[in-house]
């Protein structure tokens, strides 16, 4: 439980230092002798250039041993980071947000002939900074929030069965309405039941509402306790929702 946290947690922190210089490093220094292959590579020296770069960066940070997938993860991150920053800045400069500095220009990767300006690049980086690398909100702010939230007493618990669920609109238990074929196919195999569910569901739900205070999701539990006949109806309805949702 913890190691994956660390393994997966780390890429979110080290890359900040890593990629901060990584795009800067790797792009201007395209010359092949830059990768510093002199580092001992355990004889596995037929790695791609970027992997060796990562290796040296890691070693520079004092990481001597790492799993094979660490460079891959970092490379993936670096690629995604640079590509998204570039595409953001492409968009930014295309939409004319950064018309100020036209002097320094760099040719884009030849997408549609438009150029990325340095300001656009800066803006794109700054706009990611906000959510990609700032791990937490300031503590003072959170303390205020906590004080406000913690002043409210714990809500009373209403009588119900099984685990209580939030209001139906917040649950994923509803019926997915978006899928026409699903309904059609079911109509073919078993027409009256669909009509039954469509018509009977509200009434059934209403009856349950009285029992359990409008918590529709618990209809499933109730089905268990009330008897077999009704359960299928209810589960049939829920099942459609689930399948629909998966397809969504």
């Amino acid at each position: 439980m913890a190691s994956p946290q660390l393994q997966n947690g780390h890429p979110s922190t080290p890359p900040t230092t890593d990629t901060a210089n990584k795009p800067a490093d790797s792009q201007p220094k395209a010359d092949p002798e830059a990768p510093l292959t002199s580092q001992q590579d355990d004889g596995l020296s037929k790695r791609p250039r970027d992997a060796r770069l990562i290796h040296t960066v890691l070693q520079n940070l004092g990481v001597q041993n790492y799993q094979e997938r660490v460079p891959l993860q970092l490379l993936d991150f670096a690629y995604r980071y640079t590509s998204s920053v570039l595409s953001d800045s492409l968009r930014l400069s295309a939409e004319g947000y950064t018309s100020g500095a036209q002097d320094k220009r760099r040719a884009a990767a030849g997408d549609d002939g438009s150029n990325i300006t340095v300001t656009a690049l800066r803006q794109a980086i700054a706009s990611r900074q906000g959510y990609a690398f700032e791990a937490a909100l300031p503590k003072e702010f959170m303390l205020e929030q906590a004080q406000e939230r913690n002043r409210v007493a714990l809500p009373k618990v209403e009588r119900g069965y099984g685990v209580q669920l939030p209001e139906e609109k917040y649950c994923l238990t509803g019926v997915g309405w978006g899928l026409k074929e699903e309904w059609d196919s079911e109509e073919e195999e078993d027409e009256p039941r669909v009509n039954g569910t469509a018509g009977a569901a509200p009434s059934a739900a209403k009856q349950e509402d009285e029992d359990m205070g409008g918590v529709d999701g618990t209809g499933e539990e109730e089905g268990d306790e009330e008897g077999e006949g009704k359960m299928e109806d209810i589960f049939g309805e829920g099942g459609d929702g689930d399948e629909a949702m998966k397809e969504d």
Binding site: L143, A146, R149, N150, V152, P155, Q164
Partner: peptide
């Protein structure tokens, strides 16, 4: 949290 509430009931900050 409690299961019927979609918002947290308490924040533990520190």
């Amino acid at each position: 949290w409690s299961t019927p509430q979609i918002a947290p009931l308490r924040l533990f900050v520190g």
